[in-house]
Design a protein around this nucleic acid. Structure first.
Length: 327
DNA sequence: TTCCTAGATGTCTGCGTAGA
DNA sequence: TCTACGCAGACATCTAGGAA
């Protein structure tokens, strides 16, 4: 658990209209990971171009340089365009700066080497590093380990909407997000090859998975309702009942204390462990989760219950205040 | 690194069904 | 009965995996 690496993927990258291969997805995860220290909420930060060095087998497990090179070339051919508002100074009106850049350039590879390097231009660094438009924490190892591009994209969606427990949207919007608006014209194929296959892979490899229901207006299915679940049964790297409790409690708290705001979910879970209250919290939260699923309690009800009753009962808020005071 | 193969992906056709 | 839609299956094409 200590080795879990989260990367913060800016939401504007996820919603950018790229069609990416699995290797291109992996390269982007590595770029973001490498640039983590430079990530900022401030759009006006100045960046210099960065050289990224990646071990081939971490992107492509068969060390197939040709495929990695093709993917990097494909990424290099993708251009992005974004605007920055420059505030007016001394009575001058606000200006808009247009930026157009490729994502990467300058590929270097020494034959038979295990490593490949390339340059991320300064303007692209801003694209990868700006978090002010929102970001999604993603487990890097899990994301890279997923073999289908749809599993990767849907895993990112699960991470993004985890704190809300799920989301509703039109099927067309989801297909646009996945860049398949003109593909899978048959709903059955979309379900089977995109949704169902991703669920199977996420259940097997990821810490989150989803279930969905389709609803129709008139005769046509046009909306999808997705519910996100913590994959407590996923054994990879974890074992024992306590771990299951830890993960459930952490993911449950994360819904009400999202980690893009602060680290309360993690802090509270750690306190529960220290105070031997994890199991108690687990059964309490299970019940609340059921209440939310069957509609007997809203998210707001549960939040209020947590803040005013349950967390004090579990001696969390008191400990946390003490903790904050000590800091 | 190349090349072959298996599996994944995408499209098309025809049939069944529900609603107007 | 007609129309629109969903579904199943067949087939072509593409991509990833693995052996040499």
């Amino acid at each position: 658990m200590k080795n879990t690496i989260y990367i913060r993927k800016p939401n504007h990258i996820s919603t950018a209209r790229f069609t990416l291969s699995t290797i291109e997805y992996n390269i982007i995860y590595f770029i973001i990971d490498e640039l983590t220290k430079s990530q900022s909420l401030d759009v006006n930060v100045e960046y210099s171009e960065q050289e990224i060095v990646i071990e081939l087998k971490k992107i492509e497990k068969h060390n197939n340089y040709q495929r990695v090179k093709d993917s990097i070339k494909s990424l290099a051919s993708k251009q992005i365009e974004y605007h920055i508002n420059i505030p007016g100074v001394n009575g001058k009106s606000q200006q808009i700066q247009e930026n157009i850049t490729s994502l990467i350039s300058g590929i270097k590879y020494v034959r038979n080497s295990k490593y490949i390097s390339f340059i991320v231009p300064s303007q692209a660094c801003r694209f990868f590093c700006y978090l002010g438009g929102g970001f999604t924490p993603i487990q890097k190892t899990i994301a890279i380990g997923l073999s289908s591009i749809y599993s990767k994209a849907l895993y990112e969606l699960c991470c993004r909407w985890l704190d809300k427990g799920g989301y509703n949207c039109s099927i067309d919007d989801l297909k646009v997000y996945l860049s398949i608006e003109n593909k899978y014209k048959q709903l059955a194929h979309f379900r089977q090859r995109v949704l169902d296959d991703s669920i199977i892979e996420l259940k097997e490899k990821a810490d989150l998975f989803f279930t969905y229901t389709l609803t129709k207006s008139n005769k046509k299915y046009d909306r999808i309702s997705i519910k996100i679940h913590g994959n407590y049964k996923n054994k990879s790297g974890f074992s024992g009942v306590k771990e299951e409790h830890y993960r459930f409690v952490y993911f449950f708290l994360k819904r009400y204390f999202p980690d893009y705001l602060d680290s309360k979910a993690l802090d509270y879970t750690e306190i529960l462990v220290k105070q031997n209250n994890l199991e108690k919290a687990y059964y309490r939260f299970l019940k609340l989760d059921d209440n939310h699923s069957d509609g007997s309690k809203t998210k707001e009800d549960i939040y209020n219950l947590l803040i005013n009753v349950i967390l004090p009962e579990l001696e969390i808020t008191k400990s946390h205040k003490t903790l904050n005071k000590c800091e």
